[in-house]
Design a binder for these strands. Structure first.
Lengths: 248, 248
DNA sequence: TTCGCTTTTGCGGTTTTATGCATATATTGT
DNA sequence: ACAATATATGCATAAAACCGCAAAAGCGAA
């Protein structure tokens, strides 16, 4: 393993888990812990991570998120892994944005060969870090709140796609009102995405369940799969099973 | 084995495995490691791969060459301020990407009211942080090296715009060959942008001057304004003044 | 072909880099 | 406070990169 490769690997691990242990790294990479320590030191000097006794922490983890958010991130990671398992090579996939989607992008199998369409600037960037998937950014006016492209042009672009999968971040989900949002423009986009896909997967932390917002995106019957951090047998999810939604 | 053959072979191997070892290459190709090193060096200069101690890594894997960029950030800031001064409210502006453009976005007057069109994911995000400007992302397939959307769709979108200004990051600029790039797709985008704008501004650090790359984007006569970190009276810029380019 | 010219290549010697090991020191948890 | 780990430091070594030079190969024109 080349030195630069190791540095990349370490940063990658950090992105995924927000922390690394020196001992783990030296095992996995097959080098002495001296070398690992020197690698970490170098990355630390370059401000790419935070070195601590026994390993290192992700920079963003330390600066942007507090403990509470970490808990969320762990959950989003669980969701991301479940969702990533449903993606197969050759698929065409429409996705929205949100932090769950970012984690999802990180969790994708490095050998996956698929095409992702998205309106989210951040998601597009994260997908682009993957070595082999294709990424198509759907263009239009950028909505500053959500960092999504929205508008007639985007909707039209989506309509011209026949996707296998549509993966949507949940803003609010409710057994009565279904999937809902507060931003009219974003709703139009999500509606178009659902219409253009054979299967619809909703991902989001359980906190978002059983809440409503002002504008309806879709009925429950339009949703095929629901992914949360909860165990599929969790009673909280029972109401959704009744609506023929698969729970992962 | 001929030289060009070797270069092809190296890039091919890199595509397959994302890394190559100098020792492996000299064995497989039956040449000395000096030759391999020189081959790698050449490809590295042409930005086709990342040379590291012991071999080379694929470009797509290693996006973090921003380490060096940090040194240039002060110069880019100077450039950004000069460029920002040329933008007026009400303008429609096409922009490419690059770190200079990111700095430019940060340097914009907070009271500015203008509309920015861009193919760069990063630039779009940075522009979106501005309180009042409108941002339109031009959609298409995302080119992973440059994080730009490229393709026929993007070109077509650009063609449907009549912009006041086009601000392009310089990759290579030369009095003979004009503005040039190494990526065919990106060249198409930039050409379209130039065509769609009344005025063309090129921004970039002086390091990029007097160098050429493989594909021509535009002649000097297509460029109206050139902005570098240098003083406009710097002798290095004299050759460009002769071509009726305004220097800032 | 043969003569000059440029480009490419290989080689010897030197310098730099990467890595592991031994030893001394520091940090941590109980 | 003490044992267990982790870190820092200096050193040795092997591999890789660099440099200059000369031989070899490629190329165009007489």
């Amino acid at each position: 393993m080349l030195k630069e490769e190791r540095l990349e690997y370490i940063l990658h691990e950090l992105n995924l888990h927000n922390k690394v242990l020196s001992a783990d790294l030296s095992n996995k990479m097959g080098v002495s812990d001296d070398t690992v320590r020197r690698d970490l030191q170098e990355l630390s000097i370059d401000n790419r991570l935070i070195k601590v006794h026994g390993g290192a922490l992700s920079k963003s983890f330390h600066t942007a998120f507090d403990r509470e958010m970490v808990y969320e991130i762990e959950n989003k990671n669980i969701i991301a892994k479940k969702a990533a398992a449903l993606v197969q090579s050759g698929m065409y996939i429409l996705t929205s944005g949100g932090t769950s989607m970012i984690e999802f992008a990180k969790a994708l199998d490095p050998n996956l060969n698929a095409t992702f369409f998205t309106c989210s600037l951040n998601a597009a960037i994260e997908f682009s870090h993957h070595p082999s998937i294709e990424v198509v950014m759907i263009g239009d006016k950028v909505s500053k709140d959500s960092m999504l492209t929205t508008g007639a042009n985007a909707v039209q672009s989506i309509e011209s796609i026949q996707a296998d999968l549509c993966i949507l971040g949940i803003n609010s989900l409710d057994t009565q009102f279904g999937l809902s949002e507060n931003d009219w423009e974003v709703v139009q986009i999500k509606k178009a995405m659902i219409k253009a896909s054979k299967k619809v997967i909703c991902i989001g932390i359980s906190e978002k369940l059983n809440s409503q917002q002002k504008i309806k995106v879709a009925d429950l019957k339009d949703i095929d799969i629901l992914i949360t951090e909860l165990d599929p047998n969790d009673p909280l999810l029972d109401p959704y099973k009744k609506h023929e939604i698969l729970i992962y």
